[in-house]
């Protein structure tokens, strides 16, 4: 049976841990609020952009721009997999889920996979496993800027246009709500043409089928498509960032609750031990008195 002093020490240490997890929960809640605001504000732009692009891309010839070109699968074709993880742990299954999904994707893909790693956890995991890594970035989420997304998008587009890879896929955690994050596997390049729009287009009046372009279709695509890719990457990063803090907050909340349970259990046990000790002492005194 552990002594009273040991138990008291144990309780104190659990309490300290609880204080830390409580503080971390508070911090991530504050950060989550900011991250959530950013993603909610960024969504309309990304959604509108996607809508415009889907309706435009379904009306033009894919050969007009290299980023629209779908390439036939070849035995030596490669896929660039961009995996967005967090820089830190203590966030439940946030990183594990992305890594597992990415591992599954790579395993089931017919192409050879080249990796682009965003976030320290992903870099640590995949960097050691002998994959070909095209780029990795860490420490991005401390101060997430549009330029960072731009740089990643730029690298991916260069690899795609240069023919180094035939497909670019983005894997990240989507922020659904504070309680739920969903791992998303999204094809970034070649740009998917709005297959939904094709069917709705059939019944549309002929005067709506084509756009006027100003200055020219070529010029617009040259600007619109890279911009679209950048926005998609930016959105993925923001989603992942918000999801990270949500996951961390939930994990820390659970940890705080668990330590409260543990303290309650330990206190009960300690009191039992204390009572037993007192009872034993009384018995000793009484039996000592009887013996006289």
């Amino acid at each position: 049976m552990p002594s009273l002093i040991d138990l008291r020490r144990r309780i104190r240490s659990v309490k300290n841990t609880q204080q830390i997890t409580k503080a971390m929960k508070m911090v991530s809640a504050a950060k989550l609020r900011r991250a959530q605001e950013r993603i909610v504000n960024a969504r309309p732009y990304a959604v509108q952009m996607q809508r415009v692009l889907a309706s435009v891309a379904s009306r033009v010839d894919p050969s007009i721009h290299p980023l629209l070109a779908v390439r036939e699968p070849r035995p030596e074709s490669k896929t660039l997999v961009v995996i967005v993880t967090g820089d830190k742990g203590l966030c439940g299954s946030f990183n594990t889920n992305v890594i597992k999904a990415a591992g599954g994707f790579i395993g089931s893909s017919h192409d050879t996979c080249v990796l682009g790693l965003v976030g320290r956890k992903g870099r640590d995991y995949f960097g050691r496993r002998g994959f070909e890594v095209l780029f990795d970035t860490i420490g991005l989420f401390q101060k997430l800027r549009y330029q960072d997304a731009q740089a990643i998008a730029q690298t991916a587009m260069e690899a795609f246009i240069g023919g180094k890879v035939d497909r670019v896929v983005l894997i990240y955690n989507e922020f659904k709500s504070v309680m739920t994050q969903r791992v998303v596997v999204e094809q970034l390049l070649p740009i998917r043409r709005g297959d939904v729009d094709d069917s709705s287009l059939a019944g549309a009046p002929p005067n709506q089928t084509d756009y006027l372009y100003e200055p020219s279709a070529q010029e617009i695509f040259n600007q619109l498509l890279p911009r679209y890719i950048e926005v998609q990457v930016y959105r993925a990063l923001l989603e992942s960032n918000a999801a990270f803090f949500a996951a961390q907050m939930t994990a820390m909340d659970t940890a705080t609750k668990n330590s409260a349970d543990m303290i309650a259990d330990l206190t009960l046990y300690m009191n039992k031990v204390r009572q037993a000790a007192i009872t034993r002492e009384i018995i000793e005194v009484v039996s000592g008195a009887q013996a006289l």
Partner: peptide
Amino acid sequence: PGADGYFGVLPGHTPLLAV
């Protein structure tokens, strides 16, 4: 403000994509 100059849009404009 388009890249090649200002243009006005009224309801019923023909579909247009501009920089």
